[in-house]
Design a binder for these strands. Structure first.
Lengths: 217, 217
DNA sequence: GTCTATACTCTGATAGAC
DNA sequence: GTCTATCAGAGTATAGAC
């Protein structure tokens, strides 16, 4: 044997190092955020020179864009139907809660690094904020479609805020018991909440605040 | 009249410019986050030289610390009883939800700038993250105390995540309808959720996912 | 006490050597 | 194609002039 292709033919090699760079960038962006991640550190982590990173991607913004775009490069090659949106189908009536819970369950063990990179930087980087908004709004419209009440948009926004609050405290802040709780535990606690928010319930069945002021003094 | 104190006596003047610098720093930290806020910009916004900012606070970290610490400098002078914790008393049984809702309602119109500065930077700045953790854990223990179930800690963490998710999307991301909704609307929608999470309910009264798989294909 | 000038480091980005 | 050398600029922090 004379090794049919000992070197993967330039183009393949290029794609290979490009993938390495993107993987390293994703990791660093997710850990440190946009500002604190330097091109030099990305190059170091990928085993290449910082100049090469710039040569491939042109700018730090472009590198961030490429590193955080959804990893579905070619769904045909992976054998995954591209129409499978990860958030779940709109479904009818009360199934919106379960679809959302299923989506959350998937994210509660093993949120993809690209997504964490966006989340980490969205509060301090305008581009990351835009990317988050785009992602969130597409999910919002799906959730809104499954809620029958008139204030569906606000309810959907609330649900999105809950989901992302949980993800942030679990992965990015490692706060409280949320960091090590099992996905099932969290899902089970949130299920009734999500059911309430996705279906029309009596708005104020329980006495809101105690009307009588003055404690036991 | 010869103006009893035309110039406020150095020390007063110093406190005055110091307060100006702190106010400008709070604003910029809340808008841009720690990294993108520069000492020069703080000085410019406060109308003083950047070197003076350094002279007063020594370092950017110290400036951030001072700018984000709770504004209750001297409660005696303000006439506010210092024991009044802003999160609400532990209370008994089912009042934990109302106390938490009241705290959230207060934050939903006019979250203090110092708090926003911490929230904005907590994902990318370790010091801000620590400050947030300290604040969150003190609230967590209070909330936990009001929840009778065995998994009170996880429930409290979840409640904290919800609150902060809402605050983040409302003020920092301006997302969806959460940005302009009235506090009452949000509170009313969250009330049943909070009641569920602060009291022991049947864990799975509703059929979780539909056991029959296979959609209408 | 207040402010100006500057030192030093590090960033992203560019030009050119191999 | 890959990498070294370097640029221009901004950052924090310091020293010294008024």
């Amino acid at each position: 044997m004379s090794d049919p292709n000992p070197r993967p033919s330039r183009a393949q090699q290029r794609r290979r190092t490009e993938r390495n760079i993107l993987a390293a960038a994703r990791q660093l962006f997710a850990e440190l955020g946009y500002d604190r991640t330097t091109i030099r550190a990305v190059g170091r982590a990928a085993g290449v020179d910082a100049g090469l990173v710039m040569h491939y991607f042109g700018s730090k913004d472009e590198l961030f864009s490429r590193a955080t775009e959804p990893p579905v490069a070619d769904p045909a090659a992976a054998g995954i139907p591209p129409d499978e949106t990860p958030v779940g189908p709109p479904a009818g009536a009360g199934q919106a809660a379960e679809a959302l819970l299923a989506s959350l369950a998937g994210r509660l063990d093993g949120e993809p690094v690209a997504s964490l990179a966006v989340l980490r930087s969205m509060l301090t980087n305008p581009e990351a904020a835009d990317r988050y908004r785009a992602l969130a709004e597409s999910q919002l419209s799906q959730i809104t479609a499954g809620i029958p009440t008139g204030d569906a948009e606000l309810r959907a926004s609330l649900l999105g805020a809950i989901v992302h609050g949980v993800i942030i405290e679990r992965y990015l802040l490692r706060l409280g018991r949320l960091a090590d709780a099992s996905p099932e535990q969290i899902i089970d606690l949130l299920r009734p909440c999500f059911r309430l928010l996705t279906t029309a319930e009596a708005p104020a069945p329980t006495h809101p605040p105690a009307p009588h002021d003055g404690p036991g003094a």
